[in-house]
Design a protein around this nucleic acid. Structure first.
Lengths: 205, 205
DNA sequence: CGTTCTAGATTGAACGCTCATTCTATGTTA
DNA sequence: TAACATAGAATGAGCGTTCAATCTAGAACG
């Protein structure tokens, strides 16, 4: 799992170490949960002593925060590149297959569910998650507005936000589905999903 | 939170105690997570000594299992009553508002997300969750078949299961949404959701 | 080139604490 | 009195975190 990172001219040794720890922590959180994973376990996975981790992170919660921030930054860059496409609707529909497959990957799903569950009870994590989600929603809503206006729908913000919410719910629901029913027929789900997306984007309020 | 349960002629004292513990445990798991909640905390909430809990449950994991089983049994009875309705489609669409509101309740959402996250890493919990989900899916798929045949669609099992999956994903996604965006516009989401449900149920493969 | 110096990297033992679980002793009820 | 309900202290393991001690790479210097 943990890629054998090595320091290059680009990365200082400290950055490499930090990345190593985050990678190991993600693995441990995935398999044991935030509270189940111990510093001892993380340090062993990262190949360093327990105490050394405290040179790079103030405490365990800071590691959680960093993982969450890293995870959601990745999502932001993804949606950013998304909006830059020529034909936005086609780009989105085309991306559904990828998106569905990604959310259905049990390893991904485990960590992401862990993050949301932690956000439900840890205010600091909740703050990070909500700030990132706000940005994602704004980006997605603007993208949706472009799609909708191209097909003659001119929505107010509230309507657009509701569409965004439901679309987000559909994708995030897959995380849960991949755990509850790991044997689901991915290809067929993708097809039903694509049609549902199209319907959602051309919905008349 | 914890209802003050008292022994009646119906309930033996032991059953009452068990229920008390489960109720307290659900509260604690909601606010601290499965691993964050301690036996000491649960026993305090339940109003008894820590050691006494071990007269009713073998260990902490048994409490988790009981909570999961209880939670999902409740869901099963709900869907069972669902199928017994006269006009199934109207009953379903009518229930969307209730369903959406319920999934968006942050207290409910926290515990349910906790359960899925735990299932992602605890095989015993996963087994319970998956067995219950299978039953739910079968029930929902049969209900959907009735709806679809009433409007002239005759689907094979695989198609029906994919429709079921996507519908399940939509509702379960709301759990995550209620955490990530607690300020979402519930009424508008319900309306978009209802239209999306209708579209999903009349989708042509 | 070889030696010394030094600042950062790294270790691993130690600390205080909390955990799940067990055990013994005492209440309570029928 | 017999059987069960309950409390609460005891146990040992494991936790996050700290810290003094060691190592190591490379700059400074002769």
């Amino acid at each position: 799992m943990s890629a054998p990172l090595s320091p290059s001219s680009e990365n200082t040794r400290a950055e490499t170490r930090r990345a190593q720890i985050l990678c190991a922590a993600a693995d441990c959180f995935r398999s044991s949960g935030f509270h189940g994973a111990s510093i001892a376990q993380i340090s062993k996975t990262a190949g360093m002593s327990a105490g050394h981790i405290y040179h790079y992170f103030e405490n365990k919660e800071a590691i959680i925060a960093a993982i969450v921030a890293q995870d959601l930054e990745r999502f932001l860059t993804l949606t950013a590149g998304f909006r830059a496409a020529r034909n936005v609707q086609d780009a989105m529909i085309g991306c559904v297959a990828n998106g569905v497959e990604e959310k259905l990957d049990p390893a991904t799903a485990g960590l992401k569910l862990e993050i949301v569950a932690e956000a439900a009870r840890n205010p600091r994590v909740a703050e990070i998650v909500r700030a990132a989600d706000r940005t994602c929603r704004e980006s997605l809503a603007e993208t949706l507005r472009a799609v909708r206006e191209a097909s003659g729908h001119h929505d107010d913000d509230a309507t657009l936000q509701a569409l965004t919410e439901v679309m987000a719910a559909m994708f995030e629901g897959l995380l849960s589905r991949s755990i509850r029913n790991p044997d689901l027929d991915r290809d067929r789900v993708v097809r039903v999903f694509q049609t549902a997306m199209r319907d959602l984007m051309s919905q008349t309020p």
